[in-house]
Amino acid sequence: MLMQNVGVIAKLQPAGDGGLVVVFGEKIAPGVHEQVQEFVHSLQKLQITAVREIVPSYCSVMIYYDVLQLSRKEMCRLVLDALEKLEPFLSSLSKVLHVPVCYDGVLAPDMDCVLRMTGLSKKELLNILTSKLHLVYLTGFTPGFPYMGNLPFSVPRQSSTRRAIPPGSVGIAGNQTGIYTVVSPGEWNIIGRTPLKIFDAKRANPFLLTAGDYVQFEIIEIGEYFTLKRKIENGYYQP
């Protein structure tokens, strides 16, 4: 979808002495996502050697750069340059990944809490999650963790941090869903688990998902979860 007549209003903010954030908005929205992607593309085209990394997220783009090679002023000027040259950017590589999830029992420790907070029944919640494709706005946090937004409801994070959330855990925070990819701390409400390895360093392509892809969640029973998990571990299953 081409965004027309959308004036780009970006804010430049400092992120320490080696970083710069370009902010395009404050809310998760497909239009903002497109601006972010367009800007990343535009900045990459400038091929600035002093730029160490460009890290996009929902509404902003972080630029880590080497201040020994490029002054802050010069970096800001190049950012404005890239902003002026924004062009519609369509990823032709978008794909849909089917993600089987078990939403029951010990694999869904915060399910009851989420149902209470939203007032939804479990059937209603699962219907919301599985009835449409979820756009992956970004991958971040831990290797390959897909951030998906725009749920029709919003729930607060857990007030305390869990120290070790198992990989495959499907979480909800605010109006986002995500899938934990390695054992990591976190505050998202865990409502299920997938046997898929969204990230696997031993695979030719370690990351199953990247920004611009779509996820289709599918409900599986706990028995299927363990069967699939075994198949994946033994290399008999290709997602």
């Binding site: 320490g16 809310k27 997220s57 783009v61 880590y64 607060p156 007030s159 986002q176």
Partner: peptide
């Protein structure tokens, strides 16, 4: 408000809910 996730680098001082 609660924040939308964004990039965070080495040295960032983050403030959680508590």
């Amino acid at each position: 408000r609660e924040l939308v996730s964004d990039a965070t680098g080495w040295g960032a001082v983050e403030i959680p809910a508590h």
